[in-house]
């Protein structure tokens, strides 16, 4: 919780003739963040219950895949400014791995689903009603 209070936010940098211009807009580095994640199973919870995993857009090659594909999957990462998909685990909650669409600029979370599509289907919209 304390570490969350001092988490730094990125600022926006724009290239112009003189080099880079740093724009301290709504989300500047001085701001602080405390994410709340809407877990599909548990509802909205503090991010202290969750653990960040990695980039959810990685497609892992087969176990006997090529060296090149594995190097790409394990070591090569985009450094996205804006919306990206991430895996998070609700470690202190329902233990589910989630795919979270988060904006790296604003920390806004656009969507959260269970990573396991087969399990996602078992989630009812309300008590007693299955989605699928």
């Amino acid at each position: 919780m304390i570490s969350a209070l001092v988490w730094l936010k990125p600022c926006e940098a724009k290239e112009n003739d003189d080099g880079y211009e740093y724009k301290f807009s709504r989300y500047s580095f001085e701001d602080t963040v405390l994410l709340r994640i809407n877990c599909p199973f548990c509802g909205v919870r503090d991010h202290s219950e969750f653990t960040y995993g990695s980039d959810a857009s990685i497609e892992y090659p087969a176990l006997d895949g090529s060296m090149e594909d594995w190097v790409k999957a394990v070591f090569e990462r985009e450094n996205v400014r804006g919306s990206q998909f991430e895996t998070w685990q609700h470690t202190s909650g329902c233990r589910q791995w989630l795919v979270v669409e988060r904006d790296t600029m604003t920390h806004e979370i656009h969507s959260v689903i269970l990573a396991h599509s087969g399990v996602e289907k078992t989630l009812p919209i309300s008590n007693g009603e299955a989605k699928a």
Partner: peptide, 19 residues
């Protein structure tokens, strides 16, 4: 439903994870 429970004389059941 998620994080719901039911109880009767025989015992209780809690849904703690999706499965």
């Amino acid at each position: 439903g998620p994080n719901k429970s039911a109880s009767n004389a025989g015992g209780s059941v809690l849904r703690v994870e999706p499965l």
